[in-house]
Design a binder for these strands. Structure first.
Lengths: 337, 337
DNA sequence: TTTGATTGTCGAATCGTTTTAATTTGAAAA
DNA sequence: TTTTCAAATTAAAACGATTCGACAATCAAA
């Protein structure tokens, strides 16, 4: 519990200057090998702890990167985060994580905190209704932003997400190919860019197959298992008696399947269900879930990479980068009986 | 993109000193109301951003709290984290999150990073095999630690977790009460304190009911849905033909139920299954899961509270604090046929 | 008018690094 | 011995806030 050990503690104990010690610890070629060795050893035995805030005050690079998403508890984001984490880890950046729960205010708070801490950059899945101004706040204060999973209108920073319209069309076409004609779309909102794209993809696939689009077959709702479970009641009591459901994501799909099973029907047989995202969980659900791979790991990895490159000045990948989704066919869909 | 706005920018623009500006922005009663107003307004219009690292260099309080758990993607930890987050948020602390994936080294790295950043405290669910020394590292450098979910031998810092032996006994007794005699225990490891306590609870409950304990009925494994799913094969091919399973947690239980269903049996009817933790998901699984409430939200809230109190010097809740689990009976268990 | 208390403001040192430009050292070349 | 030059080390000025002790101004009481 002695006094705090700092550069000067080491310097004094060896009869050197702090300058030398500082350089030595950072492996500068300016200092003699023997000296460097001695210094490192002494630092070790004294239990020296590098003070990053003092350093970053001088250098204005903090090694901190912020990540803010809707909800880290949601496996969709969790899979992205894991990829981001491993990429940042590899580059010895510290990352600060936050949920915004789609509150623009909470999100702005986070950005401000990050600026105060001297964050080097921020990766965000913007909250619904995020104004351009909030992104600018970060950028103008020298903290580059990268968007994932969602876009923000008029904002040109690097953005990585799946091609939602294309992906949902894959799922819809798969069901149409199995002979289904009455296909509901369950879960999600139309307030996000994602939501609009997905609904579009669904509508266009139906139209291309000359199937009339019935707005009543759109059952919006939260994007959770719980919501999917509860949506089953509405779904099963639709007068049109849909035989299949395109779900917003795997969580909704699994919830819906549970709800269908609870009502005594067999999901995958009586009702075909598709998910979206291809979470780890999709393949072990019962029945295993037919879904659309949405490249979470890709998105996370590429976003982190883009930020690191930007910080190194080695590239500027501004604008939208779409990951192309792929179909994963399993047991939850079957031909119309 | 002008020069960075700092205290002196504001001071100069108003013909005041940085001292006054600093005090005013922090609502010190020392400065006149009119002056304070003027200063705050000016700060606003200039777009001033408080530089926390400069401040904390002087004050040695950073407002940063670290949290490290096995895996934030695991809903068990996610539920704890959510509670911690809301408590810390309320007290305007920033929290830095990390997984350690049970790597002691990654965990130590995190602690070191946190020390470098001047973290005020750390909440951790210690990695398997965490040495006392690593906790001391934090404490000795003035960064108090709080443990959650697991204990570390010989370490006396405040620790919050469920009473595992008691909880697993609840589940085992419930099954015994339903007439089951051949009860397997699925998932988890015996390398953690948690693991040892849970196995103990299981064994003691059996013994008290005069049921012989068969070590072959212990099927250890990872604590994931995937693992539970895969364990089904082993479980179903045990020569003793168990009629019930006490699972390590809800994830394993749900995976196991899926695996049982995949094999053509009906979980909850043919085989009774209990979970542990009472995740949000437990009640919407099919069949809904009989499980043990383990107070994740409580643990998170209390741990955060304890740390904040410690930082304010208002209390020292050293030692172990057990949350008492409760039974949640649902559809996945039924009387022995 | 002087004294004392009160209120509001400020100068300057400090926190622990980094970094530039300058200085010292030591060995080789003259 | 001096000169030259490269290599190794250092002094000191940042970075942007906080805070202590001093100082000036105002006002009430003596």
């Amino acid at each position: 519990m002695g006094q705090k050990v700092k550069l000067s503690t080491i310097a004094d104990s060896l009869g050197l200057s702090t300058a030398t010690v500082s350089l030595a610890l950072r492996d500068s070629p300016l200092v003699a090998d023997a000296t460097r060795e001695k210094i490192k050893e002494q630092a070790q035995t004294l239990g020296y702890i590098y003070n990053r805030r003092a350093a970053s005050l001088r250098t204005s690079r903090s090694g901190i990167i912020g990540v803010v998403v809707h909800d880290i508890m949601n496996p969709f984001y969790a899979e992205i985060l894991r990829a981001i984490e491993s990429e940042l880890d590899r580059n010895r950046q510290t990352f600060i994580l936050s949920n915004h729960y789609d509150s623009v205010e909470k999100q702005r708070n986070f950005i401000e905190t990050l600026l105060q801490l001297g964050g080097d950059g921020v990766i965000m899945s913007p909250a619904i209704g995020t104004p351009k101004h909030d992104i600018d706040l970060a950028e103008e204060n020298g903290m580059p932003a990268i968007l994932i999973a969602r876009s923000v209108d008029e904002v040109d920073v690097p953005t990585y997400r799946g091609d939602d319209a294309y992906g949902i069309a894959l799922a819809t076409n798969h069901l149409i190919g199995l002979g289904h004609k009455c296909i509901a779309m369950v879960g999600g909102t139309d307030q996000t860019s994602t939501g609009r794209h997905r609904y579009q993809g669904y509508v266009q696939a139906l139209q291309k197959a000359n199937i009339a689009v019935d707005p009543d077959l759109r059952i919006p709702g939260p994007r959770t298992k719980q919501a999917g479970f509860e949506a089953a009641v509405n779904f099963l009591s639709l007068p049109q008696k849909p035989t299949a459901a395109v779900c917003w994501n795997d969580l909704v799909a699994i919830g819906l399947m549970n709800g269908i099973a609870r009502a005594g029907l067999v999901p995958g047989k009586d009702i075909s269900v598709t998910g979206y995202d291809d979470l780890e969980e999709a393949s072990i659900a019962t029945p295993s879930l037919t879904t659309v791979w949405n490249g979470q790991a890709e998105v996370g990895r590429m976003a982190a990479r883009a930020l690191l490159d930007k910080l190194n000045g080695s590239s500027d990948a501004d604008g939208l980068h779409l990951i192309r989704p792929e179909m994963r066919i399993r047991q939850s869909t079957s031909p119309l009986k």
